[in-house]
Every structure is written in structure tokens, then in C-alpha cells.
Design a protein around this nucleic acid. Structure first.
Lengths: 130, 130
DNA sequence: TGTTGCGTTGACGCCGACGGCAAGGTTTAG
DNA sequence: CTAAACCTTGCCGTCGGCGTCAACGCAACA
């Protein structure tokens, strides 16, 4: 399979696949004329990359998962390095959820006060002697 | 007050203040020699900018709040444009909290399955005839 | 008068995951 | 023979909020 077909089957672009290659995530062979040639297993790898990107991983974090798949495992998640990344990412997400919750409360209060202030001002204006 | 003093009092850098100026958020006068000169009100403005940035606003979103302060209001929040931005941001944060919650559940499940798989594999290995 | 410490503008660097274009080579269909 | 549809490498652009020089001017103090 060449790059165009893989791109289409993986739902991405050739540009993206070439970029993954520069990042050491995908390793095509080369045919005689220099074209990249991928086997079926690479489709699985690209799907794994896309799924993890969608969850918010960076390409650096994804590397262990790809290595795990390439080592012959049925899932990219089961190797120690992958588990370590999953743990770290879960902790990061929890921390971010905390911060975002705090921000939400602050925004909510800020909005409530602003509206209360406007109501008050409006009332004063309406009762003002004209 | 010149730029260095304002930077120090606002807890930021001169570079940052000049950048805010290019974004139309801060408007110093100029002294005869071309130095930027700020009055006390600008300190308040810079504090407002910093507070909103810390909450996750972009400079574009902050513009109405600065305008509101500059219009003489005691808070930057009370003007209609500011309230609109607050509403929008609150909705954005809520949406992001949802997505992040989904991601958290997915990560949690993924991690749980990976660990379960490893336990299982470990047991099989230990019971394997040597 | 020299040095130190302010100030000025302008321009490039950063991060991450690509998009897009240029300028070519290859292959295939008509 | 030619045009279309692939492929190649390489390099610049994107977004945001600045950091970090560079090269210069101005001010104050010993």
C-alpha cells in the first residue's frame, strides 16, 4: 500500500503520514522508485496514533504505544511504558479538571455579580427623578 | 509612571506591556523624549488583563473588559459586551468540562483494562510449565 | 566624561501538528 | 505523445503570548 491509500484508509492526509515518519512513529519500506510502501499493520498503528491524539496526547506520549503494538501486542496499552503514560495522563486530566472547576466557579460568580450590579443600576435609573 | 515601574508594580515585564499596547489594550501617553508614560488607572487595567488571562481568556476576549473599565465603571465586568463574553466563556468551559470528563472516563477504563490484561498475562506466565 | 541603567523600535524564536506550495520524478490511461 | 494522477524532498505559514537579542537614544551620577 502506498501513502495515498493509507492516508485515505486512515482518514488523514499524506502530509500527516510523512510528518509521523519524521517523528519516528511510522516506518514504511521504500519501493525501487523511492515511493513509501506500508503493510497492513501500519494502518493499525496510524489508527492508534489518531485515537490517542484525539484524546489529547502529544506525539511524544504516543511513541510507547506504537512500540507496544509493534512488539506484537494485541493492544498498544499493555506495555509498562504505555501504562506509565496512561497513569500520568490521567493525573494530568484530573489536575486540569480541578483547575477548570475552579475557573468555572469563578466565572459563574463573576457573571452573577455583574448581572446583579446591572439590575441594581437599572432600578436606580428607573426610579430617578426625570 | 514609566514602563519599568508599571511592569514591576503589575508583576509583569516591559515586553508584555508593549505587546498589550500593540494589541490596543493599553494606551500610554508619550513624554517629550518618546518614553511611554502611564497614569495610575493603567495599573488597574493591567491587573484586569492579567486576571482574565489567568482564567484562560485570550486578549481579544479581554478587550471589552478594558473598555468597560476605561468608561469609568468600578468593575470591568458590568458592561453588556463583558457580560456577553462571560456568558460565552462559561459555556465554553462547561463544554470543555464535558469533553474532559469523557476523556477521563476513557483513560480510566483504558488503564484499568491494560492493568487487568497484564495481571492475567502474569498469572499465565507463572503457571506455565517450565 | 565615562559608565550604568533606563528607554526606544524591529525582528526572530518558541511550541505542536500539521497545511500548502514549489519543482521536480513516475506511472498509467487514452 | 500527452495529460492526469500519483509520488518525492524542502521550506515557509499558522496560532498566542510573549522571551530574547540587536542596535540605538536618553538620563543621571561619580
Amino acid at each position: 500500500m502506498r501513502i495515498g491509500e493509507l492516508a485515505e484508509r486512515a482518514g488523514t492526509s499524506t502530509r500527516t503520514l510523512r510528518y509521523y515518519e519524521t517523528q519516528g512513529l511510522v516506518r514504511p519500506r521504500r519501493s525501487a522508485n523511492g515511493y513509501r510502501v506500508y503493510d497492513e499493520a501500519e494502518l493499525r498503528v496510524v489508527h492508534e496514533i489518531r485515537a490517542l491524539l484525539a484524546v489529547g496526547f502529544g506525539l511524544d506520549d504516543i511513541r510507547p504505544f506504537v512500540a507496544c503494538l509493534r512488539a506484537g501486542n494485541s493492544s498498544g496499552d499493555v506495555c509498562p511504558d504505555s501504562v506509565a503514560v496512561l497513569r500520568r495522563k490521567l493525573a494530568e486530566v484530573d489536575a486540569y479538571l480541578d483547575r477548570l472547576g475552579t475557573v468555572r466557579r469563578q466565572l459563574h460568580d463573576q457573571l452573577a455579580r455583574a448581572i446583579a450590579h446591572r439590575e441594581e443600576t437599572c432600578l436606580r435609573t428607573r426610579n430617578r427623578p426625570g
